[in-house]
Design a protein around this nucleic acid. Structure first.
Lengths: 349, 349
DNA sequence: GACCGCCGATGAAACGTTCCATACAGTAGC
DNA sequence: GCTACTGTATGGAACGTTTCATCGGCGGTC
């Protein structure tokens, strides 16, 4: 089909195949004269390296796999973007896979990446994939966990301290006068969800005032799941509803907001406060601007890719855990009762 | 590094290399007995095909490239998701590139994909890339334009009729009593932006009442650009402001909404109406639920990938243009003046 | 019993690159 | 003038798969 091979370039330039390869891979070891002629030949013939042959012979790949938990979530698209920025500066491309919280898809993408012999794998895991990742590593393909702490230290990871985040979120709610708090999120297979809940409980236990934390479980961390959870809360008599909600992420929080305000005609934050996680760009533009625990999403992606590259360079590197701290961004959705209208909540964007 | 090759499988199973390859690629032509033994050997040794060697010899790739204009835009993540769904059902992976409206990045990704000899390329183009795509096609790599009509019919495309969309949006605004309309968007290198504006003008010309359409140009189609444009509108004396805004997409619209309401304390929709494009999931959850021209985003991705595969199967296929019609979704942001508060706008999600 | 056909298995060539051992030219040192 | 050395260029082996021409065995026919 195609046609211009390295051999054609060599003939055209009047040098050997080996020399062309050298120009391509270590131009320093070739005389300037040859470099010049080879480059002109490449230009004239429109030669493009065959990556398959290169990969086969040299065992070096120019792609990195990224398995993402929820590709629709702006938080993750931001993380991907960060990784992509870093990758493109190393002339790497990203093989992208969205698992959508499905174990089968997750396995499928790991298979695919293994066949492709990617340079390395970034993954925000859903199922238990440690053994799969070990196998990849045995094959020379390192993996870095993204947005998930590697509890046993077997892999490097880049994450945000979700326990601290959950704690900070609830402390903030308590500070603004809330006492009956519900954590809305799920499934609890996702570690972040567990951690954020755990953090929330810690804050409640440490509080001077008596604070209760109940759990409203959702099937997923999506806007739709948030809407559904909101409906369930609305189904209760007014007096039995919580006075503050901690959502597992901003998508759920936006869903809750929508359900409570539009369907339930509840006043946010007067009757009920809501705080989310991630601080996605849309949190600030919501019906009631949403308070949120901001995560440095792009930075997470960049850092993860950087660590991955370090590990490909030196496979014996000891795994390391990088943990960022989330940052509380206060907007109107958690303003103290009664002060709400007066405080439009100018913070963040 | 790795180690289990097809030869090892062959030895383990007591057959020849060719037979193993046949089991892998056309199990029908191999005796059931051999198939069974080979599969067991594969299982026991943990053999994984080397895609580079396969690609080199067979010239067949298992990846499809997708070059996206704006990876942060939920509309595009939805399109990607649709393509991904279709791809994974054919056991293909997606090589992903986000150009972020940058010509250099766009070129870089096309280079990368060419080196990779992807099966085909989906692209929502920014710069003029026709010659690059022709070259790819000459190398046996077809391309399908996504979210962009191929004016000269040289490539297949899957898009939405943006002229009709612009027209419908403005007709709706006129119906709800608006007369001084501003189109907010840019850059005008992007065809959609041009088309939507053109449609808007058509609607204005066809209107019975005298309607004016002015242009407020933005640097990009992002929330931030929308906020900036909103500020410029607010800088004008109240009487000289338009009474309706057509945003180039929902991101811009959300930015406008934020600027006008929070900064400018303007009443939407009473003083000014806003309509966007795409109907991203967050449009419904905005401060004032946003009217929008919905595009069938996932379907666009699925369709594009399907056409791409058809073209890989038969390279002589004549390019065809698939055009969807956008759908008007009315929410509160464009309610007729005065009726606003009474109509929460239950439509769409 | 010899021959024919057919099904399945086999072995080796080929894909396009990288890399290494080797060759070669030119220079410096004695 | 010979050797040693340095800096470049060369040719061919190797990467792991697919594919294709060929081979062997077996059952059926005459």
């Amino acid at each position: 089909m195609a046609g211009v091979r390295i051999r054609d370039v060599a003939e055209h330039a009047g040098v050997s195949v080996g020399t062309v390869s050298n120009v391509l891979n270590r131009p320093g070891e070739v005389s300037p004269d040859s470099v010049e002629r080879v480059n002109r030949a490449i230009e004239e013939l429109g030669y493009v390296r065959n990556d398959a042959a290169r990969k086969l012979r040299a065992g070096v790949s120019t792609t990195v796999g990224f398995v993402v938990l929820d590709g629709q979530n702006p938080f993750f698209t931001d993380v991907v973007r960060g990784a992509e920025d870093e990758a493109s500066s190393h002339n790497l491309a990203i093989l992208y896979g969205n698992t959508d919280e499905d174990v089968a898809r997750e396995r499928m993408y790991l298979d695919l990446f293994e066949e492709q012999q990617v340079r390395g794998v970034l993954i925000s895991p859903y199922g238990d994939i440690h053994s799969r990742l070990e196998r990849l590593r045995a094959r020379g393909i390192p993996a870095v966990l993204v947005d998930r702490f590697s509890g046993d230290g077997r892999f490097s990871s880049v994450s945000v301290d979700s326990v601290a985040g959950g704690r900070m979120a609830v402390e903030h709610l308590i500070d603004s006068g809330r006492r009956r708090i519900a954590f809305v999120g799920g499934p609890f297979e996702i570690q972040q969800v567990r951690d954020r809940l755990a953090g929330a409980r810690v804050a409640a236990e440490n509080a001077v005032a008596p604070v209760e934390v109940e759990v409203v479980a959702t099937e997923a961390t999506t806007v739709a799941a948030g809407v559904a959870a909101g409906a369930r809360i609305l189904a209760r008599p007014r007096g039995e509803r919580p006075d503050a909600l901690v959502a597992a992420n901003d998508l759920v929080a936006l869903g809750l907001l929508q359900a409570l305000i539009v369907e339930g005609r509840m006043l946010v934050p007067d009757e009920i406060a809501i705080i989310g996680f991630d601080d996605i760009p849309f949190a600030a533009a919501a019906a009631v601007p949403l308070s949120s625990m901001r995560q440095p999403s792009r930075m997470i992606g960049r850092t993860a890719l950087r660590i991955l590259l370090e590990e490909t360079a030196d496979p014996d590197l000891i795994p390391r855990q990088t943990v960022f701290l989330p940052e509380l961004v206060v907007r109107r959705s958690t303003a103290p009762t009664g002060v709400a209208a007066a405080n439009p909540g100018r913070h963040g964007r």
